[in-house]
Design a protein around this nucleic acid. Structure first.
Length: 164
DNA sequence: GCCAACGTTGGC
DNA sequence: GCCAACGTTGGC
């Protein structure tokens, strides 16, 4: 893994676009982000950066897999398409306001790492998703990233771990 | 379905 | 530039 890889968490509602949708499509232009902080995070992404793929408004909400950035930030055409649900009258091809990045499927975890588990893990203290749940594109520290991946590949918490 | 948190808008 | 009103997000 390249030394300068950065790590992120991106949220999506599975009813709209899930990890399975991404697995089918292989790669997806991540359009519709309409929050400046999230947009600015996308602008600082580099191709090859790794992403924790998070399902919000899901039962349970949590990290369900990995993706990577396969295309850098560029203007989001849905922002000036009046037929798009993400249309913004203040954005145009000449003066684009919103960006997207290309997101590529890496893997679906064998299990969901639920938000509840993220909260309960002392190693993940301070992770953005735990304290600022509304930000849809967030930076993740390398340490936190590695820990979430480790959790995904270990047995789950009490509800589905084997009897002791 | 509720509602707290929080981002955005717009009047002043 | 402040801040109240409003809209949205997202966990529960």
């Amino acid at each position: 893994m390249a030394k300068n890889t950065a790590y992120w968490l991106m949220k999506t509602e599975p009813d709209t676009f899930s990890i399975d949708d991404l697995a089918r499509r292989k790669t997806e232009p991540w359009d519709g982000v309409r929050n400046y902080q999230a947009r600015n995070h996308m602008r600082s992404m580099k191709v090859g950066d790794l992403v924790l793929f998070y399902h919000s408004n899901a039962k349970p909400p949590g990290v369900v897999g990995l993706a990577k950035i396969s295309g850098p930030a560029r203007p989001d055409p849905s922002s000036w398409n009046p037929k798009s649900p993400y249309f913004d009258a203040k954005s145009s091809p000449e003066t684009p306001r919103w960006d997207l990045v290309e997101v590529e499927f890496v893997e679906k975890f064998p299990r969901i790492v639920a938000l509840e588990e993220l909260r309960a893990a002392p190693e993940l203290e301070g992770m953005v998703v735990i304290q600022r749940s509304r930000l849809s594109v967030q930076p993740v520290t390398p340490t936190h990233f590695a820990h979430v991946v480790r959790m995904a590949k270990a047995a789950g918490h009490s509800t589905n771990s084997p009897p002791s």
